[in-house]
Simulated scan of single mutants.
Amino acid sequence: MLDIVIDAREAAISEAVRVKRILPFRQRRMVGPFIFMDHAGPISEAPPQLGSLDVLPHPHIGLSTVSYLFGGQVTHRDSLGVEQIIRPGEVNWMTAGSGIAHSERFEDPAALAGGLEMIQTWVALPEKDEESNPSFNNYKPEQLPIFTDTGVWMRLIAGNAYGLRNEVPTASPLFYMHVVLQSGAHFGLPKEHSERGFYIVKGSVDVAGVTYRPGQMLVFNRGVDPLIKAKEDTTLMMLGGEPVGERFIWWNFVSSRRERIEQAKEDWKQGRIILPPNDNHDFIPLPKDNSKPAGGPPRPEPLS
């Protein structure tokens, strides 16, 4: 049966960018190892100050960030010296591990012409990998397998599902997919994983006689195989996997240990997490407790 329906809430990630925040949700903190999900855009007009869209350098620990675009482009820069423009259909997979800082800049006004739209998720790392060395990889569309059937198109972003696999390395069992359904198409969730759900980017679907619309995530109980019917042309992001255990999250930090969150706070305040060498003239300072900082929830909370 359907476990929960999550309605996205509005949040700010920069001066000019408001997002739909799906995870974490108070009644459902994670789906498999996925601990965070934001949907930005579409934004089709540049603000008077293009830089107001930018997300300044900020830190992460204990997770992988996964960025995926439907439209526009974003420039990623990080502590490793990586500078990478991500375009639609590509995947930016950054593993923070013991600590990394990165920025997301919107530097080309022409890239907004078709509408900037992006999904970013965070994947919590298993305990044994929480202090791994930071890394970054960009994957092109041709590296991500596509499956088509009558009225169905889907791209596997990471993991395995429906017999598909790709070379995007993951630290724990999971799946993450971009799915496009034509009106009237029927579809089912993959059965390989114990926790599964999908987020409606656009369009609408019918599940067990109930209509669900954009901005909603549906999460299903273990062993349930719902029939998903597209009521119109619809775009979904499907995700899930195996749980990795309880996690704490504060701002951009994720860990299985509350004290590690406190250490990360101090590391950022003291400059021990270095800034991107090619984007180090400004950054987001550590927010005060109980504030609502860009990029994450306001205070540490256990996730399960």
Rank of each mutant, 00 (worst) to 15 (best):
L69I: 03
F70A: 08
G71I: 12
G71S: 14
G72F: 11
G72N: 03
Q73G: 13
Q73H: 15
T75H: 09
T75Q: 05
R77W: 05
R77M: 11
R77T: 08
D78M: 00
S79V: 04
E83P: 06
E83I: 12
E83Y: 07
I85S: 12
I86W: 07
I86E: 07
R87Y: 13
R87I: 09
R87W: 12
V91R: 05
N92I: 04
N92P: 08
N92C: 05
W93P: 08
W93V: 04
W93I: 06
T95W: 06
A96R: 00
G97T: 03
G97D: 09
A101V: 10
A101P: 14
E104D: 07
E104A: 13
R105I: 04
F106A: 03
F106I: 07
E107D: 06
E107A: 10
E107Y: 01
D108E: 11
A110Q: 12
A111Y: 07
A111K: 01
L112Y: 01
L112K: 00
L112G: 02
A113Q: 13
G114K: 05
L116A: 10
L116S: 12
L116N: 09
L116M: 15
E117S: 13
E117A: 05
M118A: 11
I119C: 05
I119Q: 00
Q120K: 02
T121W: 14
W122T: 08
V123L: 14
A124P: 08
A124T: 13
A124S: 13
L125W: 14
L125Y: 14
L125K: 11
P126R: 01
P126W: 13
E127K: 14
K128E: 15
D129Q: 15
D129I: 07
E130R: 02
E131W: 11
S132C: 15
S132E: 14
N133Y: 08
P134E: 06
P134S: 07
P134V: 02
S135A: 10
S135N: 07
S135D: 03
F136R: 01
